[in-house]
Simulated scan of single mutants.
Amino acid sequence: MNEENINANEAPKKVSPLVSLEEDLKFYSDSIKEVSVEIMVEGISLYPIFIAHQHEVKIGELILNREELNTKWTIQASTLEEFVEKGIIHPDKKESFIKNYKRPEDYMCVFVIVPDGANFIFYPFK
């Protein structure tokens, strides 16, 4: 087999978008923590959720715009209550979500939206 065939059979390795997300979350950490504390102190929610996306979403309030900050991800702030209200978290799953929610003083709860779908992650504040 010549080299051409070997290389043609190897799928190009795609870099996960989560690599750039981690970089941005480190960069955004202090700002996200500030907003998280504000949401809790003001009595808005005990369960802040931050939406990380690269497109447009219709949930939460824009807090960090990737175009303005020259980063790869935009972050919006929301709450468990809004996620239930919008049907993203089913009311029957609310208690389970609360049980699995990590200490908001130590972790940001991030709802990551990528073309393949969306998922929750808990990322430690720096």
Rank of each mutant, 00 (worst) to 15 (best):
V110D: 00
I88N: 05
N9R: 15
T79M: 06
L18P: 05
F122I: 00
L25D: 01
N100T: 10
M108N: 05
M40T: 07
K26V: 15
V15C: 08
F27Y: 15
L21P: 07
E3M: 14
P17A: 01
V114P: 02
K33T: 03
V112I: 11
N7W: 15
Q76S: 09
K86R: 14
I32P: 02
P115Y: 10
V110W: 03
N9T: 14
E105I: 14
I32T: 03
I63P: 01
I88R: 08
K26M: 12
T79F: 06
E61V: 12
A118N: 12
D30Y: 06
C109Y: 04
H53N: 12
N5H: 10
I88T: 11
Y47E: 01
E23T: 13
K93Q: 11
F97E: 05
I51V: 13
H55W: 11
I44P: 02
W73P: 02
Y101H: 03
F111A: 00
K14N: 10
K126W: 12
I32V: 12
I39E: 00
Y123V: 06
F120C: 06
Y101S: 00
N2M: 11
E38D: 15
K58H: 09
G43F: 02
K99H: 10
P17I: 05
D116W: 13
I44Y: 02
C109S: 14
K26P: 07
P12A: 08
N9C: 13
K99I: 09
M40D: 09
N70V: 08
K94N: 07
E38A: 14
P17T: 03
N70W: 00
L25G: 02
E67R: 09
N5L: 14
I121F: 05
S36R: 00
E95H: 07
N100R: 09
Q54R: 12
K102F: 12
L64H: 01
H90L: 13
L25Q: 00
E42K: 15
L21W: 01
E38T: 15
P91V: 08
V41G: 04
E22G: 05
F27K: 11
T79E: 06
A11L: 14
I49Q: 01
F27H: 12
A77H: 03
G60C: 04
